[in-house]
Every structure is written in structure tokens, then in C-alpha cells.
């Protein structure tokens, strides 16, 4: 497990170093066009929202920066998880359709974001519902894979371009979300549960480099 993390970090470093080393900075337009597609466009750090007390990762921006696709690794310390800390690995996609540029052009508001996520909590720390001690279909759901959906908003501050001329920015976001099991609970108990019972809140920041 640790080896994979080390390897991931190592290749990540090489990948992020490649484009910078590959060309001489002539002008910013040329630099942008040479930017390798596979190099992540931003780093993410989030707290709560069901994917860790802290979760961090990288992501890409597509469709003129309206669609973000992020991969995050989250952590819930032992203190909040019972007898073992939890690791949570999340794939998340966020669509942000509207941008309002404020009078001070460095600031942008994104009043609406929505998206979905899927995450995996490794079974070593959980009593897995699909374990061999159960016959097939004993529990119908997976205890380690969660699907989620969320609504939120975001505010962005442009920063000075970096050495190669790429525009950098930092943004803060919040997300009100829920997950598949909470939705099932709500859908089967329309008088017994309220929508606020099944909501989760997460806040985070993105750094576009």
C-alpha cells in the first residue's frame, strides 16, 4: 500500500516536472499549447462532505473550466472512526455552469455547482457487506462503495500567472450533499425523515496551478 503511494508520488513528480523541462519559455501562448493534457490542472483540499475529515487530491478542468474531475484520498482519524482510522478514496465530478465576474476582475463568483461522486473505503477497516461469511444477496448494498450527489457554490480569486505564463487561481467551495443509503432511507420514510436529516456539508479549496 505504502509502496503504491510512494510510486504514485514519484511518477506524479516526474509528470509535473516534464512540461516545464520540455520547452523553453518563449511566450505564454506557446507554453499553454504545449501543456501536457495529462498533467493535473489543480490541487484540492476538502474537509467533511462524507469523504474524510481531511481529503486531498488532484483534478482536471474540462469544458472551459466548467467541469472538474477530481481524485481525492481522505482520512478519518481513529478518534472519529472507532478502533481504526478510515481511508476513503473518492472520484468526484463537479459542474459549475455560471460565472459572475465581480467589478474587481480578479474575483469570480460561481453561485451554483452540482455533481456526483463515488468513493471506496477499504475493507480492512470495515465489516464488508459482501464478505464471504454472508451468502449472496444477504445484504443488498455495498458497505465500502458509496455514491453521492451534491449542490454547492464557489468563489475564485485569480492569482499572478506562474513563470510559464499559466493563469493561477485559488477558490473556496462548499457542498451540501447526501449519499445513496441516506436517499434510500429518506425515500422509504417520507413522513419519518426530513431532507435535513440526510444532508451532509463539506467545504474545500482548489488551487489551479
Amino acid at each position: 500500500m505504502r509502496i503504491f503511494l510512494l510510486l504514485g508520488g514519484f511518477f506524479g513528480l516526474i509528470l509535473s516536472a516534464l512540461p516545464a523541462a520540455a520547452q523553453a519559455p518563449t511566450d505564454s501562448a506557446a507554453t499553454l499549447s504545449v501543456q501536457r493534457w495529462y498533467v493535473p490542472k489543480h490541487a484540492v483540499l476538502q474537509t467533511a462532505g462524507g469523504i474524510g475529515m481531511v481529503s486531498g487530491g488532484m483534478g482536471y478542468s474540462l469544458l472551459r473550466q466548467r467541469l472538474d474531475v477530481d481524485v481525492l484520498a481522505g482520512y478519518v482519524p481513529r478518534h472519529y472512526a472507532g478502533n481504526k482510522a478510515l481511508g476513503i478514496f473518492t472520484l468526484k465530478t463537479t459542474y459549475t455552469p455560471y460565472t459572475i465576474t465581480l467589478r474587481d476582475a480578479a474575483w469570480r463568483m460561481h453561485p451554483l455547482s452540482f455533481g456526483g461522486l463515488v468513493n471506496y473505503t477499504p475493507s480492512r477497516t470495515l465489516n464488508r457487506s459482501r464478505d464471504s461469511k454472508y451468502y449472496k444477496g444477504y445484504y443488498w448494498w455495498s458497505s465500502t462503495v458509496r455514491f453521492g450527489a451534491f449542490l454547492g457554490g464557489r468563489v475564485t480569486r485569480e492569482l499572478k500567472p506562474n513563470a510559464t505564463g499559466r493563469q493561477r487561481a485559488v477558490s473556496l467551495y462548499y457542498e451540501l450533499g447526501t449519499n445513496d443509503l441516506y436517499v434510500v432511507s429518506l425515500a422509504t420514510n417520507l413522513s419519518g425523515l426530513k431532507i435535513t436529516d440526510v444532508l451532509t456539508l463539506g467545504v474545500g479549496g482548489k488551487f489551479t496551478f
Binding site: G50, Y80, G82, L86, Y182
Partner: peptide
């Protein structure tokens, strides 16, 4: 609402 994980305690 500030949930770390549905599995947190």
C-alpha cells in the same frame, strides 16, 4: 451536517 464519513462515529 459536517460529516467526515457515513462510517464515522
Amino acid at each position: 451536517l459536517f460529516e467526515f464519513s457515513p462510517n464515522d462515529v
